[in-house]
Design a protein around this nucleic acid. Structure first.
Length: 1066
RNA sequence: GGGCCCGUGGCAUAGCCUGGUUAUUGCACCGCUCUGAUAAGGCGGGGGUCCGGAGUUCAAAUCUCCGCGGGCCCA
C-alpha cells in the first residue's frame, strides 16, 4: 500500500514533515552531518521584531533558505545563525499606544522608563516568537537557538566598541541636523512620520523687500509663508542659471526672477513697472543686503561672514511660486541648512524645541513661533518693507500624533559618523563584492556611496543602544566608553543592578579626568541601523572570542530587499570598512518587493497586506515557495496572486502523480533499486530510457549553473519544466505499457530503475524549493526502494554524470516530440481520431540528421502515432504532392541589397514561380530575377523553399520536416479502431467498480449486429489483455446473455453500433 | 527635484546584452481529441499599437534619445 495520498495536499504533507523534523531533530542532524565540509557562511539580515511577517518578507526568506539548503546538500558546512533586530522607534511607538502614552515626554511621568523598557522587551519577545513560528512554517532552516539579538548587552557592547574605535579615528562627532520637530511632543520626527501627517493649513503669504547695500534704492523681493523665520534669515538664494530682472516700480527698483515677473506684479498690485536690467542668478552672487531685523536682533549685528546677509546661488530654487529669490534661514530648513554649510555661514537658531523664542530675540523671548507671525508682519509693515500680505492654504506637515504643525529646527547636539576619509574606501571595497544583479552594486549602491553624507546616528529615544558618550558637567570634556568593563572602572559608583539600556546606563556617573567633575551620559540612543550594521562582528560574539569571526568573515552571502541598500547594506559596509577595512560580504543578492495582485504597493493603510502566516496556511509553504522563487528573477518585483500559486500547485501535483504511479507498481513488484544493475543494462536499454537519463544530466547541469549564480528562478523553472514535460508528458506514457510485463522482466526492471534514478535526482534538486514535498517523497517513496538516510537533507546533490549524457539521444527525442505533434496536427485536420489506427505515416525530413534520427524511432512512432507503417521519404518523392513557396533569407540578402530588400520580399511573395526558381538554383547555382524592372541575381542560400498542400493525404510541417498521414480506411483498421473503442468502455466500467489495476475479471460483450462482433473478434486477444479479462465471451445478436449472473453490465453505443458489456471480478 | 528598475494578447511571462523568416510559453476562452496520472493530457483556433513618439538601419520588441505609466531609494 502506498504511503502517499491519492492527491497532493500541501497542508497535510507539511504538517507531517514539520512534525518529523521536530521529533527527529533533523535540522541538528543535518548541521552535524556537514561539520567536516568546507565553510560557507550566510549572514542573516535581522528582521525587525515589530509587526508580523508578510509575503514580501517571506519571499526573501524563501530565497535565503533555497540557497542555504542547496549549499548544505553540496557538502558545505553552512553558517546560518538567525538574528533579530529588536530596538528602535517603531517598538516604542507601539508600546506608547498600548500604554496610552500620548507623547514621549510623558513616559517618565506616567509609567517610568524602567517599566517602559520592560514593556518594549515584552513586545519584541512577542513578535520574535511569531517570527520564529512563521519562519519555521515557511521551512526556513536557520539556527534559531543561538540567534543574535541586537537588544542584548553582549551585542550592544559591540556597538560601543565600534563607536569608541570610530571616535579614536576621528569619525565620531557632533553636528547640526535640521529636524521636523513637534513643539508639543518636544520630539523630532522621522521622515516616515512626517509623510504620514501632511494636512491643509492656512498660513500668511507675504512678499518682503530687502534693501541692497551699495545699490541705491534697489531691493530683493522674497516670499515666505513662515514670517517668524525671517528673524533668522541669513541669506537669499537665487538659481545660478535663471534670469533675474531689475524692475522700476516708481522711485525704487525690485529684483525678481524674470519668469515670475508678471505673476508677482499682479499679486502685489503693481500695474505700472518697467524692466531696466537683466542678469543671470550667478551674477548676483555675493550681493549684500540689510537684514530686516538688524536693529532688533543683536546676533545679526555681530556676524559679518562673507556670505552673511548676501545673495547665494543654489539649484533648489524653483519658479513654481514666490519670486525666484528664496529667503534662507539655515536654522529652519534642510535646504537652507545646506546652503549655510556650503557658504560657511553660521547657523542661528533662536528657538527652543518647544517652539518658543529664546533670549537671543529679547522682544519675542518665550513666545510661540506661530503666534509671532502676525507680529512680524506688523513690524515689517511699520518698517515699510512689507510689499504684500495675504493668506494661503497649503499642505503642511503636522505631528501625526497630536496634529500640531511641525517646525523645522536645526539642532547642533546630534552625533554623526563622518564620511570624510572613509568614502573612497567604501567605494573601493564595494567593488570587490559580487552583486546580483550587477547593476544593483555598481550603479545603484555604488553611486549612492559616492554621494553619501555623514550619518546621523543619534536619536532622542529610549529603546535603543545607548550612545556611549559621557560629558563633564563642569568642563565639557567628553569620553567615549568602549565596553562595560571600562565603564565599571571609570564609574564613580557602579550600581548592583545594571544593564546597558536606559535608564540604568544613565545612572552611571563618571569622574572627569580633566577637572574631576561629574560626567553624565549624552541622553541619546543610536540609530538602530548601527545595531544591525554591526552584525558581521557582533553576531558571532567577536569581543568574547574572535575565533568564529576569523573563520567566517567575510561572509559568503547575504540577500535582502532593495531598500536595504541605504539601510543594512550600507551600515554593514561602513562599520566593517572602518573596523576591518574590507566588505563584510562577498556576494549580495538584491531583491525587489512583492506587490499586491494588481501591482499596487502593500500597505497597512490600504489594507492590502498579505501576512505570511495566512498565505502559508491557505496555499501551503511549498507552493508558496516555488511560486516566489520561480515567478521572477529576484531583482524583479512580483505581484502576489494566489491564483497563480494554484497553478504551481498543479505542477507539483503532476510530480506527486508520477511518484504515485511509480510507487504503486514498484510496491506491487517488490522492487529494489540497484544503480549498478541499471548502468550495466544501459547499452542495451530502450531509447526512451537512455534519453531520460541523459535529460536528467542536462537538467542537473543547468540547475547547478543557475544555483551557483543565485538565479533561483532559472533553476526552479528548469526543474519544473523537466518534471512536467520530459518526465510526465513524454517518458511516463512510454513506460506505462511496461508495467504489465512480468515483475522480473529486464525491460520492466530497467524502467523502474530509470524512474527511480530520475525521481531521486529530482527530489534532491527540488529540496531547496519545496523542502516539505521533497522530504515526503524521499521518505514515503525513495526510502522504500533503496537504503537512504532518513532525510533528503542528509543526502548529496546529484552531479551531472557524463556517462549517462548523450546529446544525440536528446536530439532524437526532440524529433520524436515534433513528429508526434505534427502527426496529431495532420490527423486533426482530417478528423481522424488517434484511437483509430492509420495505414501509413510518411516523413519528409529537412536534414540528414532528422532522417537518421527518425529511422531510429520507427518502433516508438508506430505505437505513438498509431500507424501500421512509418516511412522516411526522400524530398523528391514528396514533390509530387506539394507546391513551392519562397521566402528570402534576410541575413544573407539584407546586407547585399539594402534598400531593394523590401521590393524583393514582395516579389518573392507574390510573383515568383517557385518551382522554376528552385530548379534554376539547383542546376546553375544562381538565378536572375527582374524586380520592378531591375535585374537581380540570386544564389543558392539566398532564399528558402517551403512545400504545402496534401491531396487525399494530410500534411503538417514542423522544424524537422513534413509529416504526411495516409488516412485511407480498411476493414482491418476499422476493426482495430472499434476494439480500442470497446476496450476503453470496459476500462471505464472497471474504474466505476473501483477495481484495482491488477484485478482480473470475467468479461462478456453482447453485440446487436454480426459485423461488429466479427470486427472485434479479429482482436480478441488484444481486448482481453488490455482489460485483464481471464475469460472473454463475444456474443452475437441471435444469442442471449443471462445478465443477472454478471455483477455489472452497461449498454454502450459506439459510432452507431450498440453493445452491452458485462463483467464480474474474479 | 535626483538615481535605479519594470512596462510584450484578458492575466502572467520568454526573447532584449549579441537587430533578421510567422514574437515564446502558461492560465483563461472556443472547437476537436485522448485516457487506469482523470478536478489531468494532446491537437487546433481566436485574441498583440511588443507603453507612446522620434532617431540609427535594407531591417527595431531588441540599439539611441525624448516622453508616459507603475515601483523602489534618496532629497
Amino acid at each position: 500500500m502506498s504511503q502517499l495520498d491519492k492527491q497532493y495536499d500541501p497542508l497535510v504533507v507539511e504538517k507531517e514533515v514539520l512534525k518529523f523534523w521536530d521529533e527527529q531533530r533533523i535540522f541538528e542532524k543535518t548541521v552535524r552531518s556537514r561539520e567536516k565540509g568546507p565553510r560557507w557562511s550566510f549572514l542573516e539580515g535581522p528582521p525587525t521584531t515589530n509587526g508580523f511577517m508578510h509575503v514580501g518578507h517571506a519571499r526573501g526568506r524563501a530565497m535565503k533558505d533555497a540557497q542555504i539548503r542547496y549549499m548544505t546538500m553540496c557538502g558545505y558546512n553552512v553558517w546560518r545563525r538567525a538574528g533579530w533586530d529588536m530596538q528602535g522607534l517603531p517598538v516604542e511607538l507601539e508600546v506608547e499606544r498600548n500604554e496610552g502614552i500620548a507623547e514621549k515626554g510623558q513616559i517618565e511621568t506616567t509609567i517610568g522608563l524602567d517599566k517602559f523598557v520592560q514593556k518594549c522587551k515584552e513586545l519584541v519577545d512577542f513578535y520574535l516568537g511569531r517570527w520564529v513560528q512563521d519562519s519555521q512554517r515557511l521551512g526556513l532552516w536557520l539556527d534559531y537557538d543561538t540567534a543574535y539579538q541586537t537588544r542584548r548587552d553582549d551585542y550592544i557592547e559591540h556597538v560601543w566598541h565600534f563607536l569608541k574605535l570610530a571616535s579614536e579615528k576621528g569619525l565620531l562627532g557632533r553636528g547640526y541636523r535640521v529636524n521636523p520637530t513637534c513643539p508639543r511632543c518636544v520630539t523630532a520626527l522621522s521622515g516616515h512620520e512626517v509623510s504620514q501627517g501632511y494636512k491643509r493649513k492656512v498660513d500668511p503669504s507675504i512678499y518682503v523687500k530687502f534693501r541692497l547695500v551699495d545699490r541705491e534704492d534697489e531691493f530683493l523681493v522674497i516670499w515666505t509663508t513662515t514670517p517668524f523665520t525671517l528673524i533668522s534669515n541669513e541669506m537669499v538664494s537665487v538659481h545660478p542659471d535663471y534670469t533675474y530682472v531689475k524692475v522700476d516700480v516708481g522711485g525704487e527698483y525690485w529684483w525678481v526672477v524674470k519668469d515670475l515677473l508678471e505673476t508677482v506684479m499682479a499679486k502685489v498690485g503693481v500695474s505700472s513697472y518697467k524692466v531696466v536690467e537683466e542678469l543671470s542668478g550667478s551674477d548676483m552672487l555675493g550681493w549684500k543686503y540689510v537684514h530686516p531685523f538688524l536693529e532688533e536682533v543683536e546676533w545679526h549685528r555681530e556676524h559679518h561672514e562673507e556670505y552673511m546677509h548676501a545673495v547665494v546661488t543654489g539649484t533648489h530654487v524653483t519658479v513654481e511660486d514666490g519670486t525666484g529669490l528664496v529667503h534662507t534661514a539655515p536654522g529652519f530648513g534642510p535646504d537652507d541648512f545646506e546652503m549655510g554649510r556650503e557658504y560657511d555661514v553660521p547657523v542661528f537658531v533662536p528657538v527652543d524645541p518647544t517652539g518658543r523664542f529664546t533670549d537671543e530675540v529679547p522682544m519675542f523671548a518665550g513666545k510661540y513661533v506661530f503666534d509671532m507671525n502676525p507680529v512680524v508682519c506688523e513690524m515689517l509693515k511699520e518698517k515699510g518693507t512689507l510689499v504684500h500680505e495675504e493668506t494661503i492654504e497649503h499642505e503642511y506637515p503636522h505631528c501625526w500624533r497630536c496634529d500640531t504643525p511641525l517646525v523645522y529646527l536645526a539642532d547642533n547636539t546630534q552625533w554623526f559618523l563622518k564620511m570624510t576619509g572613509v568614502r573612497d574606501r567604501l567605494v573601493e571595497r564595494n567593488k570587490e563584492v559580487h552583486w546580483t544583479p550587477t547593476w544593483a552594486g555598481s550603479g545603484r549602491f555604488g553611486d549612492w556611496l559616492a554621494n553619501a553624507d555623514d550619518w546621523c546616528i543619534s536619536r532622542s529615544r529610549v529603546w535603543g543602544s545607548p550612545l556611549p558618550v559621557w560629558v563633564c558637567t563642569e568642563c565639557g570634556h567628553e569620553v567615549v566608553i568602549g565596553s562595560r568593563k571600562e565603564l565599571r572602572e571609570r564609574a564613580v559608583e557602579f550600581p548592583d543592578e545594571f544593564e546597558m539600556h536606559r535608564p540604568w546606563v544613565d545612572r552611571v556617573v563618571l569622574k572627569c579626568d580633566k577637572c574631576g567633575g561629574e560626567m553624565r551620559r549624552e541622553p541619546f540612543v543610536t540609530d538602530c541601523w548601527l545595531d544591525s550594521g554591526m552584525a558581521h562582528t557582533a553576531s558571532v560574539d567577536y569581543l568574547k572570542d574572535p575565533s568564529l569571526f576569523n573563520e567566517l568573515f567575510p561572509y559568503d552571502f547575504i540577500t535582502e530587499a532593495v531598500d536595504q541598500s541605504r539601510g543594512w547594506f550600507y551600515s554593514l559596509l561602513y562599520t566593517s570598512v572602518v573596523m576591518h577595512d574590507r566588505a563584510p560580504f562577498k556576494a549580495c543578492v538584491s531583491q525587489e518587493h512583492v506587490l499586491d495582485k494588481d501591482g499596487g504597493k502593500m500597505s497597512k493603510s490600504r489594507g492590502n497586506v498579505v501576512w505570511a502566516r495566512d498565505a502559508l496556511e491557505s496555499v501551503g509553504a511549498d507552493p508558496f515557495r516555488i511560486f516566489v522563487l520561480t515567478k521572477n528573477a529576484s531583482w524583479n518585483r512580483t505581484n502576489y496572486d494566489p491564483a497563480e500559486i494554484e497553478m504551481l500547485k498543479k505542477k507539483l501535483s503532476v510530480l506527486w502523480n508520477v511518484v504515485l504511479f511509480a510507487d504503486t507498481y514498484m510496491a506491487l513488484d517488490k522492487y529494489r533499486y540497484d544503480e549498478s544493475r541499471m548502468r550495466a543494462a544501459l547499452s542495451g536499454a530502450r531509447l526512451e530510457d537512455r534519453w531520460l537519463l541523459s535529460r536528467v544530466q542536462s537538467t542537473v547541469e543547468a540547475y547547478h549553473e543557475a544555483m551557483r549564480a543565485y538565479l533561483w528562478h532559472r533553476a526552479g523553472r528548469v526543474l519544473l519544466e523537466f518534471v512536467s514535460e520530459d518526465l510526465s508528458r513524454v517518458y511516463l506514457p512510454l513506460v506505462k505499457k511496461r508495467v504489465w510485463l512480468d515483475a522480473d522482466d529486464p525491460e520492466k526492471v530497467m524502467a523502474y530503475d530509470v524512474l527511480f534514478y530520475t525521481l531521486h535526482a529530482v527530489v534532491r534538486c527540488l529540496n531547496p524549493f519545496t523542502p516539505f514535498l521533497a522530504e515526503k517523497l524521499h521518505r514515503s517513496f525513495l526510502m522504500r526502494y533503496c537504503d537512504l538516510p532518513e532525510s533528503v537533507n542528509l543526502t548529496d546533490m546529484p552531479l551531472p554524470d557524463k556517462d549517462l549524457q548523450d546529446d544525440e539521444m536528446e536530439a532524437t527525442f526532440d524529433l520524436l516530440e515534433e513528429l508526434r505533434s505534427a502527426a496529431s496536427h495532420a490527423r486533426n485536420k482530417k478528423g481522424v481520431k488517434l484511437r483509430h489506427p492509420v495505414a501509413r505515416v510518411m516523413f519528409v525530413p529537412a536534414s540528414e540528421d532528422a532522417a537518421r534520427r527518425a529511422r531510429s524511432l520507427i518502433e516508438i512512432l508506430l505505437h505513438d502515432l498509431n500507424t501500421h507503417e512509418f516511412v522516411v521519404l526522400d524530398s523528391d518523392v514528396a514533390d509530387e504532392f506539394t507546391r513551392l513557396s519562397v521566402t528570402p533569407n534576410f541575413k544573407a540578402l539584407g546586407p547585399r541589397l539594402k534598400k531593394k530588400m523590401r521590393r524583393l520580399t514582395k516579389f518573392l511573395e507574390e510573383e515568383v514561380d517557385g518551382a522554376w526558381l528552385r530548379n534554376e538554383l539547383e542546376t546553375h547555382g544562381r538565378a536572375k530575377v527582374v524586380v520592378d524592372g531591375e535585374e537581380l541575381e540570386l544564389v543558392a542560400g539566398d532564399v528558402e523553399f517551403h512545400e504545402s498542400v496534401p491531396e487525399n493525404l494530410s500534411l503538417a510541417e514542423c522544424r524537422a520536416g513534413k509529416v504526411i498521414v495516409d488516412v485511407t480506411r480498411t476493414r482491418e483498421l476499422e476493426a482495430e479502431g472499434l476494439v480500442r473503442d470497446v476496450t476503453r468502455r470496459v476500462q471505464v466500467m472497471r474504474k466505476e467498480l473501483d477495481l484495482s489495476v491488477e484485478q482480473m475479471i470475467d468479461l462478456v460483450i453482447h453485440f446487436s449486429d454480426d459485423e461488429s462482433m466479427e470486427l472485434v473478434s479479429m482482436f480478441k486477444d488484444y481486448l482481453s489483455n488490455e482489460t485483464r479479462a481471464e475469460t472473454l465471451r463475444l456474443v452475437g445478436p441471435s444469442e442471449a446473455v443471462a445478465w443477472k449472473r454478471w455483477n455489472y453490465s452497461v449498454d454502450w453505443e459506439i459510432d452507431g453500433r450498440k453493445i452491452r458489456v458485462g463483467m464480474t471480478p474474479k
